[in-house]
Structure formats: C-alpha cells, structure tokens
Design a protein around this nucleic acid. Structure first.
Lengths: 347, 347
DNA sequence: CGTTATACGTAAATCGTTCTACACGACGAA
DNA sequence: TTCGTCGTGTAGAACGATTTACGTATAACG
C-alpha cells in the first residue's frame, strides 16, 4: 500500500487520491493537456483548490517546464527599467509564467554567470536587456534557451527575437528638434562600451550623424564618450562646457547622463537652455520634475516590455522564426531645449 | 578543447563514470560533505572541471537546497534599492548562492504571490525589502523558509531576522538639523499605508514627533500623507505650499517625495530653502545633483544589503535565534536646507 | 453483430540530484 | 581471536512532477 507519510506538503499524489483519479490525470489537468473530460477536469480542479495544492516548480523543472522566465537587467539605477518590468509583468499577469530578475552590473562576466545560473535553474526562457556581450555569445545563449533581446541591435540575421526602439529615428528627432530651434553645434554624448556596433548608443550615433548632415550641420558633428560612473560623466561634461567654443547643445544618450549634465551646467553658473541646451533619452519619470524639465525621447518601456514577454512566451510555445519588433519613439519637448525668447539675460 | 557531446547533458553520473567513482561520492564532493579523502576529492574535481559539469539546480531543489535566494523589492524606481542589491551581491560573491529578484509593485497581493512563487521554486531563503504585509503574514512566511526582513520594524519578538536603519534616529537628526538652522514649522510628509505601525514611515514619524517636542516645537507638529503615485504627491505638496501659513520646512519620508516637492516649489516660484526647506531620506544618488542638492539621511544601502545576505546565509546554515541589526544613519547636509544668509530676497 | 476509431484514464519509467543505510578494510583494545 | 570504532566509499530509495505507452469504454459504422 501507499507508504504512510506525515508529510505536510500537498503533492500531485494527494490531489489524485482526493479526487479519486490517477496522478497522470491530475498532471494533464494542470497542463491543459489533451485527453481529459470536462467532468474529470472539474473534479480535479475542485480538489486542487480545496487542498490548496501548488505544483512544485523544481520537480516540474526536472522533466517539463519550470514556468520561470529570467530577466537580466544591466543595473537597478535606471528607472526606465521599471517601466519595462511593468510591461513584462502585465503581459504575464494571466499566465503561469513567473519572471525573476537578475542584475548584470553592466559587466559581461556577471551577465554570463547570471545566464548560466538561470539556465541551471531550468528557466524556460530569457529576456536580456541591453546585454553587454558580443553577438556570438548571445547567439550561443539563444541556442540553449528561447531568448528575447531588448535594447540591442543585432548586426545580421539572428535566431533570437529582438525588441527595440527605433534608436536612429529617436536620435534624428532630437537633432531635427534642436536644429529647428536654431542650435547648431550639437554634441552627442555617448557611452564608452565594448562591442559597440550592436549597442543602442551606436545606433543613436548613426541617427545623430545622419540628421546633422541632413540639417547642413555636418561640420558641427562631435561625439564624446565617458564611462558610466557619475564621476567620469561629470568630468567629461565639465570639460565640454568649459571648452571654447562651448557647444550650444548636448544630446545625451540616456537621461541619467543628461541629469548630470544639468547639474554641472548649474554648478558652472550656466543657464539651460540659454547657454546650453540639454536633451536626454528614455523619458524617465524624473524628466518631468521642474528642476530637470528635460526634453527627452519616449520609447514606452511598458510597451517594449509587454512585447518582449509576449514574444518570449510565443517562442517557448514553439515558434521557430525570429521576430524583430521595432517601436516608434516620440519626442517630448520640455524647457531644457526651449529658449524663453523674451527673457534672455546671459549667465 | 575537451571533446564533449553537444546533445547530452553532463550529469553527476557522467562525472562519476569519468572519475571512476560512485554518484554518491561526487555528490559528497559537491556539497563538501563529510567522508571523502583528499585523493578522491581531487580526482572528482578534476573530472568536474574537465567536463565542465554544472549541477542541475532544479534537481538539487528536489531533495536538498536550490542555492537560490529570493529578494523581493517593492518597486524598481527607487535607486536606493540598487545600493542594497549591490551589498547583497557583494556578500554572495564567493558563495554558491544566487540571488534572484521579484518586484512586488508595492502591493501586498503581488508580494504574497511572489513569495509563493519563490517557495514553489524551492528557494532556500527570502529577503523581504520593505514588505507591505502584516506581521502575521511575514511570520507565516518565516515559518516556511529562512527569512530576513529589511526596512520593516517588527512590533514584538519575531522568529525572523531584521536589518534596519535606526529610523527614529534618522528623523531626529533631521529635525535637530532643521531646528538648529532656525526652522520652526516643520511638516513630516509620510506615506499612506496600511499596517502602519511596523513601517519605516511610522518610525520616522515617532522620531520626528519626539525631536520636535524636545526642540520645543511641539505645537508645530504636523503630519501629512499621500499615496505613492507622483500625481497624489504633487497635489498634496501643492496644497501644503499654497496653504497659509506655509510651512517653513518639509521632511519627506523618502528622497523621491522630496524631489517632487522641489519640483512643485519651483513651479510655484518658491525658493528653496529661503521660502521652504526640503529634506529627504535615503541619500539617493540623485541628491547630489546640483538641481536637487537635497539634504538627506544616508543609511548605507550597501551595508544593509551585505548584512541582510550574511544573516540569511547564516540562517540557512542553521542559526535558530532571531537577530536584529540596526545601522546608524548619518545626516548629509546640502543646499536644500542651508540658507544663504546674505542673499535673502523673499520670493 | 463485429470491427474500428476515438476519447478518456492509468501504470510505470524518467529527470538529476541528495541522503540514508550499509559494506568493507584497517586498526586498536580486550 | 573477537569486538568495536573509524574512515571511506557505495547502492539505492526518495523527491514531485511529466511523459510514454498502453488499456478500456463508448460510439460509429458497415
């Protein structure tokens, strides 16, 4: 007979006994598998809810799916990621899938370790957000598990899905806006990265260069770079703003950099936008604060996250061909680029 | 380098065969268990590295530990959490434990779901950061798995560990600083929460009230509350700043609120700190920006995270008695509270 | 009535670990 | 010799699900 167990845990066996059916039948109900009658399904469901049964995810992971999705973020400081996660959560709301996050610390080594750790834990799929790895490595990961990459433009055809904002367009919108307002010497402030060609920073640079040329400002093209650390950023901005001639506008590849730029400008006693205009990217919630009032590009993180999660689940369910989604960015103009023509007292 | 079958997974059995020992022996080596000779350990280790074996975490979770720790954050927008995670990561760097994050969306229901999801996945322990749940619920969770709670003060003796900043002291430091600068009507801006008595907001309120009384400002004591959403916060701040008499200073329970307050003050044409002083809490990195220059309380998120992770691992390894760590906060004074006595043109 | 297809259920193998119980040889003490 | 202990190592039973392969009604059809 059944070995007597004082075990507190409600397992699939408990449910099966309670409902008077086989273990396999319960499993079928759990997975919405083929071959269960409505009557049996109802009976089992009733037992499940009455006993408060919850499937043991580790055990599931042994043979089938773990119903866990791994999301890897570069860091936790950028509030833009909160929007993306909100979208991912929304997409998975009514599914059995549970997203769990890992923080890659903007380091390829940590990211890879995290990927391994997640695959060891039998995650059903991965969402990589702005990975710092080479394309080859990402491709290798995609061989091992369904993968969706965000904020990262593959160079050629890939076997993994991507979800991106049209970064070139976003940059163009910014340059066009600035040029339209009469700014000429517009500097692009980028990030010092390896494997540059697939990063969003690079695509924004392409858009910047193209739009500058189109606007007849080709001779003003200038790109500077700094490490991500606040200290490095400040030093570079200070150099820029104290240089002669001072640029009329700075287009920062992400909001965080722009906030630092605003700070340095203020420290130097410069007025924004009269002395220098500043633009960011991502339309982080902090852009709206009056002390920042930062013109930025909205790329709807929520929508990006939603689509990424949707694509990933599709992939897990069997889709083979890669899909590449591109979302159209939108310029949000605020005071950091709009001169108050009346009040124009320097300093 | 080593020839490896790309299709077949390297399991503990593969390693055992390769090293010419039993499966159990390999398992012992993996877990640093008692009863293995140096010779055998070396032999097995060699095979492990040569084959590139990685233990299957889901399978481990079936019987032993999963070596996964769950961290639950209320949201992803507060950069303070980045510091805490950095501390947690640092503490777990050299261990086998892998932290994975879940976002509770500041909702008790979501948090509970997340806890269940994590326990379904056999996580070895949980770190709850500023949970919105009742003490009873947290206690129930702690019965099911080793638990460390951060930014949450239990009311009585508990069976789980806690790591906190001395919130009462932090609030006192702020009030003492403001009182010392000559501010009298100091408002405490708190958050509208359920289960208030164990939240940090409440403890800061206690400290605020005590310090106000001690400073002889008892009749100025005033506490306002708002929901966490930016819109609600702004409305409340606007009400406050347009009221008569206008408070001389606002002590916001967290930096994020203070940034909104700075924004509203600026929109209303008020000067900070001449018309109103503003203080935050957490000493987020954005406090340092010149446009914010926010006086705040530093509670060293990194240290908090480090200790929490350390306590959790201790707990998992068998410690029974609860420990309650309290870290001493530090006031960081910036321009948002320091009047430039020379330049004092109202409005 | 017999045959066959279809729908519903079941028993048992399986996944990759951990862990209990035990085997075995060496050694020392009685 | 006999017994017990210690140090090493092994066999095999869990753990809780999924999945394969198959059995049994029931219905449909000729």
């Amino acid at each position: 007979m059944a070995p007597r167990k004082p075990s507190a845990r409600v397992t699939i066996r408990t449910v099966a006994a309670d409902a008077g059916v086989s273990v396999a039948a319960v499993s079928k109900v759990l997975r919405n598998a083929y071959g269960v009658s409505e009557a049996l399904r109802a009976k089992v469901q009733e037992s499940i809810t009455r006993l408060g049964y919850r499937p043991h995810a580790a055990a599931r992971g042994m043979r089938g799916q773990s119903y866990t999705l791994g999301v890897i973020l570069p860091d936790l400081t950028n509030p833009f990621f909160a929007d993306i996660m909100a979208g991912i959560d929304a997409a998975l709301e009514r599914t059995e899938y549970q997203p769990l996050l890992g923080v890659g610390q903007s380091s390829p080594a940590v990211e890879l370790e995290l990927v391994d750790a997640m695959l060891d834990r039998q995650m059903d799929g991965l969402i990589l957000l702005g990975p710092r790895m080479t394309i080859d490595r990402i491709a290798a990961i995609a061989e091992r598990a369904p993968t969706v990459v965000m904020a990262h433009h593959p160079v050629g055809p890939t076997r993994f899905d991507t979800v991106n904002d049209d970064d070139q367009l976003g940059a163009r919108l910014i340059v066009q806006h600035l040029a339209g307002m009469g700014y000429r010497s517009i500097v692009y402030f980028s990030q010092d990265l390896q494997f540059n060609e697939s990063q969003v920073t690079y695509h924004r640079e392409i858009g910047y260069r193209a739009a500058m040329t189109e606007a007849g400002l080709g001779r003003y093209i200038s790109v500077v770079m700094a490490e991500q650390a606040p200290r490095e950023v400040r030093t570079m901005v200070r150099q820029l703003l104290q240089g002669r001639p001072r640029p009329e506008a700075i287009f920062c590849w992400t909001d965080f950099i722009a906030f630092e730029a605003l700070s340095v400008a203020r420290e130097l006693g410069l007025s924004v936008p009269d002395d220098v205009a500043i633009v960011g990217y991502d339309n982080t919630r902090y852009c709206d604060l009056a002390q920042n009032a930062l013109t930025s590009i909205d790329q709807s993180g929520q929508l990006l996250g939603l689509q990424a999660a949707r694509l990933l689940v599709e992939r897990i369910k069997g889709r083979e061909e890669a899909e590449h989604l591109v979302i159209t960015p939108r310029l949000v103009v605020r005071a950091s680029t709009v001169r108050r023509n009346a009040v124009s007292t320097g300093n």
